Simulated scan of single mutants.
Amino acid sequence: MSDSAFDNAGFSTKAIHAGYDPDPQTGAVNVPIYTSSTFMQDGVGGMRNGYEYARTGNPTRAALEANIAAIEAGQFGRAFSSGMAATDCTLRTVLRPGDHLVIPNDAYGGTFRLIDKVFKHWGIEHSVAAVSDPDAVRAAMRPNTKLVWVETPTNPLLNIGDIAALADIAHESGAKLVVDNTFASPYLQQPITLGADIVLHSTTKYLGGHSDVVGGALVTNDEELHAGFGFLQNGAGAVPGPMDCYLTLRGIKTLAIRMERHSDNAEKIADFLVGHSAVSQVIYPGLESHPGHKVAEKQMRRFGGMLSVRLHGGADAARELCAGTKVFTLAESLGGVESLIEHPAAMTHASTEGSELEVPADLVRLSVGIEDIEDLLADLEQALG
């Protein structure tokens, strides 16, 4: 069946079927892993189905790109070797020396590092603003603003941005809106349907879902942006290998049921931590006390598997909690089936130290997995003491 046959299909049907028809020669239900680095041509320039060299295009990668576009309700997808490669491609496609972009005041550390330590030296200016405050984003806009960069929920403080409102602000100034949808996943949130121009993923996280593959992706409805992404994807060469694409596709097939379990577990853990004497604040969009709860409720299917806590005991208590869990594994990254715990100030967000984006030292971030909730709660209870 062609991808158009799934236009009106449900999310899980698209996740399982979009992007690939069973192989007409063998009937293979799963997309083959095409490991060839080059493809035979029928005469000079006579490419078969557009394939000539694996950096430029690969059938396994093409299936992944079509699949991610479908589940994000977009027309065009591009896959990359990492989320940071997708980030770099976005910045280099949209921005030129002298341009300006707005970024969240609690953006992912890797995004901030790339913009602040690399693109700043190429003449790209940036300002920070709270994505949860549309007026602050509007105030940060300049005549030379070409891009508004949004995470929602943000990493690691889980602030919520109103995607539709932020799209209006960007477009009023002639800028593009890019939404890093890694924390939410396409199952919980589809930014293009809310007005975003570009959706970005670290597919390493929820899309792959098993902590066994690194990748990134961009989705857009803009044909010009898609062409620009493709030019850099090929020209710079930060492409995923066919095995990476296969593993990501395999993960996507179970995304919906995994996200439901992630959300179930995170909600129960948030409720448990709210009442714990060692915890000064629980940051989770699913709590009615969260300032972005109503916006999240409006634009998300559920509230996801990520939550953060702040501890009365400060940085020492945060480190002790990270060291004290047995089911939660101390590690960077997120979105896998296993639960992870980390200290952002010293790990994923160390690059923000001393900046406007510096992360509180008493903050601990949890990526809640799909283990039995009783085991997760018992682990946190013993680690908190």
Rank of each mutant, 00 (worst) to 15 (best):
A15L: 07
P134Q: 09
W149M: 11
G304C: 12
E332Y: 08
R310W: 08
V179K: 01
V359L: 05
F11E: 11
L273Q: 06
G109Q: 02
V279A: 05
H343N: 00
V137C: 13
V368R: 04
L232K: 01
V178P: 15
L225M: 08
P32A: 09
G77H: 00
C89G: 06
D88P: 00
F328L: 15
N105G: 06
A350L: 15
Q25L: 13
M300H: 10
N49K: 11
S4I: 14
V213R: 15
V29P: 00
L157T: 03
L194N: 06
A256R: 10
V214K: 10
P22F: 06
E338K: 00
V148N: 08
D135S: 10
P242S: 06
I33H: 01
T352C: 13
R310F: 05
K205W: 12
Y53M: 15
V279F: 13
L247D: 02
L377D: 00
V94W: 03
E338V: 08
Y20N: 00
D372F: 00
F231T: 13
V327Q: 11
G369Y: 03
A107H: 07
G385D: 11
G19P: 02
S280L: 03
T35F: 07
I33K: 14
Y51Q: 06
N30I: 05
S2R: 04
S12W: 13
G195Q: 00
L194W: 08
L287S: 12
C245T: 11
G385V: 03
G161K: 12
G57L: 05
A350R: 11
M47S: 03
I160P: 06
R113F: 02
E356V: 03
N49M: 12
F76D: 05
L255A: 05
G19L: 06
G43W: 02
G74E: 06
W149G: 09
V131T: 01
F11Y: 15
V179W: 03
Y20S: 04
F119T: 04
A164I: 14
V274E: 10
R113Y: 05
G46S: 04
D372I: 01
